[in-house]
């Protein structure tokens, strides 16, 4: 079973995304901000990370830039999941090492489609 870390400061989003990912046969874990996510990744790298942008303590973009410099930090497939829709923001995320990008609001079809395109399903 593949693992996915859901990183979002909204408990509701973590719960909804977690349920969708469980239906897609992922074992999920949660983090409420980038620093928490980084600590978890240092302990055990997940196969995938569903990552929010705007969060307290450490935002998604800084988390991703730091993650990609970590040993084995290039391994997880990172899918941004954010309300940011500007092309410049999307480009910034891709340049920082994101593999795919989900714009909120999302549904199960979108998550499935994006994870499929990222080669996770």
């Amino acid at each position: 079973m593949k693992t996915c870390l859901v990183v979002d400061d909204s408990k509701m989003i973590r719960r909804v995304a977690g349920r969708i990912l469980k239906d897609l046969s992922f074992e999920t874990s949660e983090a409420a901000n980038g620093q928490d996510a980084l600590d978890q990744c240092r302990g055990q790298m997940p196969d995938a990370i569903l990552l929010d942008w705007n969060m307290p303590v450490m935002d998604g973009l800084n988390f991703l830039k730091t993650l990609r410099k970590e040993p084995k930090g290039g391994d997880p497939v990172v899918v941004f999941c954010t309300a940011e829709r500007d092309v410049t923001k999307i480009t910034e995320a891709l340049e920082a090492g994101a593999d795919e990008y989900v714009m909120k609001p999302f549904d199960s079809d979108i998550i499935e489609s994006k994870f499929m395109m990222a080669g996770l399903i």
Binding site: L94, E100, V102, S113
Partner: peptide
């Protein structure tokens, strides 16, 4: 719509071939 472009379309294609 926002939903249409997120089904089956890689993000790289969205920013290359679409305008918001």
């Amino acid at each position: 719509t926002h939903f249409d472009v997120q089904r089956g379309l890689p993000i790289t294609d969205l920013i290359r071939f679409f305008d918001r």
